[in-house]
């Protein structure tokens, strides 16, 4: 489950104050990190938001950024998921060109394999909705490349640690491993 060493998934729990995102993003930018994705939303506690950053950087610098993040007054908690057992998901909407009935059938078949939902249908395109981890997103995009991707948008990854236990928490029991779907 751990990402390649240069790619880190970091969640930051913050007080909902204006400007807090700029402060966090500034810490990454100052050290030359590119933020690969970023998602922000309210958490289970009113007044607190959870943000998930996916960044590329060397481990020593990432550690320094984490310590700097921890120092920000509006930051309550910083978790680097990379070294831990975590669940992460991303949502993607992807519009793919359709050039005839054969392609339409083929696309539906692939979508089924990936458990992607079709959320919009027109004569010349289909829009799929897909959730999963990064690998699954990339694999699906790869398959769609042959048909012609018209537009796509991804939410960026969100992550939570799994509950303690040998194979992670109950999450594994209720949802079969994502990889099984991927051809």
């Amino acid at each position: 489950m751990s990402a390649p060493s240069s790619r880190r998934v970091i969640s930051v729990t913050v007080r909902d104050e204006p400007g807090v995102l700029v402060r966090i993003a500034g810490l990454f930018a100052r050290r030359g990190f590119n933020i690969a994705s970023l998602s922000v939303a309210e958490s289970e506690t009113p007044g607190l938001s959870r943000t998930t950053f996916v960044v590329d950087g060397d481990p020593a610098t990432i550690e320094q950024v984490q310590k700097q993040l921890q120092k920000l007054v509006d930051v309550l908690k910083v978790v680097d998921h990379t070294e831990t057992n975590f669940v992460d998901r991303e949502l993607m909407l992807i519009k793919v060109a359709v050039r005839g009935p054969d392609e339409r059938v083929e696309l539906r078949q692939i979508a089924q394999d990936f458990r992607a939902r079709i959320v919009d249908v027109s004569r010349r395109a289909l829009v799929f909705e897909l959730t999963g981890d990064e690998g699954k997103m990339d694999a699906f995009i790869d398959q769609m490349q042959d048909f012609g991707i018209v537009e796509l948008i991804r939410t960026g990854r969100i992550a939570l640690p799994r509950s303690a236990g040998r194979n992670g928490g109950r999450g594994d029991a209720v949802a079969p491993p994502e990889r099984a779907d991927v051809t």
Binding site: G19, V22, G26, R30, L72, V73
Partner: peptide
């Protein structure tokens, strides 16, 4: 000013 002084202060408020 809030944006400009963020990186050069320990904290700032508007």
């Amino acid at each position: 000013v809030y944006g400009i002084t963020g990186p050069v202060t320990k904290h700032n408020f508007l």
